[in-house]
């Protein structure tokens, strides 16, 4: 009997190393590697088809990569400790049609054996303006409300690694501002946050670092200032110009 500590790795946060995934003849991920440390907010950027959602789903343990290694809070992805440490908001809200919003939150609490979860749930409902509709089924809610409900579920269990796939889609400006504030708070508490987004301004405002993907691999990784230098654009260029320059060249930086 070894008696070695749980999770042979000492790596905290999220580590993605050499991830590969092929769908039929399309290579969605091609040696993707990056890292999100505790307390860091990293934006995952890329054009359509770059492999962002595939990467998110592999990290969340929904898709199995063909090759590569994913470590979540020191535990290999797909293991029970990794599942307990991660929270995933998919691009499309994944709600049960037969459960109301309050019951969805209770389900998350039961799934993670949370004690004293009710005040946190109430705060999230209040923050995302869901208190009035807590007894309603998802089918009777707008897309934005459903997304906010899914967000509340993702934020409830106090994950060590938070994955948000296009979290700002369909959110009204107030909810988007609340989400940015919540994400900032969580990062301040040491949570590693990975946000996949098309919104370059959003990435610029909340992310401490951006990982730019194209054709399934990382073409640039750094702060906005570093990305400007890598892309060879002027210092006053906006992130869109940086993004276009990086993804057009499509070469690893």
């Amino acid at each position: 009997m070894s008696g070695e500590p749980l999770g042979a790795s000492n790596e905290r946060g999220l580590v993605v190393d050499g991830l590969e995934r092929v769908f039929d003849d399309k290579r969605a991920l091609d040696g993707l590697s990056f890292q999100v440390t505790d307390g860091e907010i990293v934006a995952l950027l890329g054009p359509n088809g770059a492999g962002k959602t595939t990467a998110m789903r592999c990290i969340a343990g929904v898709l199995l990569p063909d090759a590569g290694r994913i470590t979540i809070a020191g535990a290999p992805a797909g293991t029970v400790p990794a599942q307990a440490a991660i929270s995933f908001l998919p691009e499309h809200p994944d709600l049960y049609p037969g459960l109301n919003i309050d019951e969805h939150l209770r389900f998350v609490a039961l799934s993670h054996a949370l004690s004293g979860w009710r005040p946190r749930a109430e705060a999230l409902l209040e923050r995302f303006d869901l208190s009035e509709v807590r007894d309603q089924l998802p089918g009777s809610l707008s897309q934005g409300m459903r997304r906010k409900a899914a967000l509340s579920m993702a934020l409830l269990h106090g994950a060590q690694v938070l994955l948000l796939d296009e979290p700002f889609n369909g959110l009204d400006p107030q909810a988007a501002a609340e989400l940015r504030a919540v994400v900032g708070d969580l990062a301040g508490q040491g949570v590693a946050v990975l946000v996949s987004t098309h919104g370059l301004d959003t990435a610029d405002r909340i992310a401490t670092r951006s990982v730019v993907m194209a054709a399934g691999r990382v073409v640039a990784d750094g702060t906005t200032a570093q990305l400007r230098r890598l892309a060879g654009v002027p210092d006053d260029a906006d992130l869109e110009a940086v993004f276009l320059a990086l993804t057009r060249s499509d070469s690893s930086v």
Partner: peptide
Amino acid sequence: EHLAIRTIPGR
């Protein structure tokens, strides 16, 4: 049809 059965921690 939902992700929870794959993502919630458990055997």
